[in-house]
Every structure is written in structure tokens, then in C-alpha cells.
């Protein structure tokens, strides 16, 4: 059965400036864009930023199809918001609201295209270093993330199998019948995983 879009991001290797930029540089860029958009007095700022990011992303090799895949799911809501704000406050505010959302959609696309997901996850674990102050271990966050990603195919498979079984018996897909066994096998899987961790000396 289809697992849908890949869980491992839309990174595609390349040699552009953005591909070679260090992660902290991209992080700083995101902070700058965020501050600029938040402090922006009116719509030209997000509009210009979105245009600049679109150009940068295209230069780094984001194709038309990938832009579309990233932006299309948001279009209905953006359209609705445009109509609402044009009617209630005028086109200026509509452009501001929709432009702000668009900036971050474009930014996400550019980041995901030029950075391998594994690198992003490592970066987040490093960002989590301050949790040491409250006695937690950032390495555990990293472990939890990879355990979670590893478990998704199992859970998707468990639900998918039950869905097929229900369909094969000609029953209506009843969410309770479908999800209860899936959750129970998920809990059993979690216990096995916990025991495996304990067996490897993880307290």
C-alpha cells in the first residue's frame, strides 16, 4: 500500500550556495526573516521577502513541480483568507496576511530542498542542549526522534492491515473496530521496544 510522500524530506543534493551554507547560517537566516516579517509595517516587506526566497530557491534547484507540491495544499485556505480580508479590511491587509504565510511556506521549501533531514534533526538535538539545565539529556531527545521515525512504518502497517481485513470481510470501516486493535498492537510494540532498550543497558 502507498505510504504517501517520503518521510525523509525532499532534499536533493546540489552544489549551490544554499546547499553549502552551514546549518547555523540557515538558522540565522530563518531568525532574520522571522524578525523582518514580524516587525514589518505593511505588505511590501513579506512580498519582497517571498520573491527573494522564491528566486533563491529556484537558483538552488527547486523546480516548478516541487514549489507546487509545497504550496498547493495551502491554497484553499489562503484564497479564503484573501477574500475575507479584502472584504473586511481591504487588499493591503489581505496581501500582508497571505504574504506572511507564503513567506514561511517558501522558506520551508527552500530549507527542506537544500538540507538533508538527518542534518536538521541533528541540529535540533544540538539546539536542545539547554534542557541539560533541567536535568534532561538532549541525546535522549535524539533517540526518541529516531525511535519515532522508525516506528511510523510499523504503525501505518498495523492500521493498513486492519483496514484491509475489515474491507475483505465486507464490513463498514468502523473507526472503533479499526483503531482499537491497532492501538493495542502499538502498545505491545512499544513494550517490546522498551524491553529491547533495557536489554541494551538503557535505564
Amino acid at each position: 500500500m502507498s505510504r504517501g510522500p517520503d518521510l525523509f524530506g525532499s532534499y536533493s543534493p546540489g552544489g549551490s550556495l544554499l546547499h553549502r551554507a552551514p546549518l547555523w547560517g540557515k538558522g540565522a537566516g530563518i531568525v532574520v526573516v522571522t524578525v523582518a516579517v514580524v516587525l514589518a509595517p505593511a505588505w511590501p516587506v513579506p512580498a519582497v521577502l517571498a520573491a527573494v526566497l522564491l528566486a533563491a530557491g529556484t537558483a538552488a534547484g527547486v523546480g516548478a513541480r516541487e514549489w507546487w507540491r509545497g504550496l498547493a495544499p495551502a491554497l484553499p485556505v489562503l484564497l479564503l483568507l484573501t477574500v475575507y480580508h479584502v472584504l473586511t479590511a481591504g487588499p493591503g491587509q489581505a496581501a500582508d496576511v497571505v504574504g506572511t504565510i507564503a513567506v514561511f511556506l517558501v522558506l520551508t521549501r527552500v530549507l527542506m530542498h537544500t538540507t538533508p533531514l538527518a542534518e536538521l534533526l541533528d541540529g535540533v538535538v544540538r539546539l536542545c542542549a539547554p534542557v541539560r539545565l533541567v536535568g534532561a539529556d538532549p541525546e535522549r531527545i535524539g533517540l526518541a526522534i529516531s525511535l519515532m521515525l522508525r516506528s511510523i512504518p510499523f504503525v501505518v502497517g498495523a492500521v493498513g492491515e486492519l483496514r484491509d481485513a475489515v474491507r475483505a470481510r465486507g464490513l463498514r470501516p468502523n473507526p472503533v473496530l479499526l483503531v482499537t486493535p491497532a492501538v493495542i498492537s502499538t502498545v505491545a510494540y512499544a513494550q517490546r521496544t522498551g524491553q529491547a532498550l533495557a536489554a541494551r543497558g538503557f535505564d
Binding site: 526518541a144 526522534i145 519515532m148 502498545v187 512499544a190 522498551g194 535505564d203
Partner: peptide, 11 residues
């Protein structure tokens, strides 16, 4: 957070 907790959280 024990090993079992961590596994439960992740799963």
C-alpha cells in the same frame, strides 16, 4: 523517563 517510558513516548 525510563526506557519503557521513552519507548512509549516515541511509539
Amino acid at each position: 523517563v525510563t526506557a519503557e517510558d521513552l519507548a512509549n513516548i516515541a511509539v
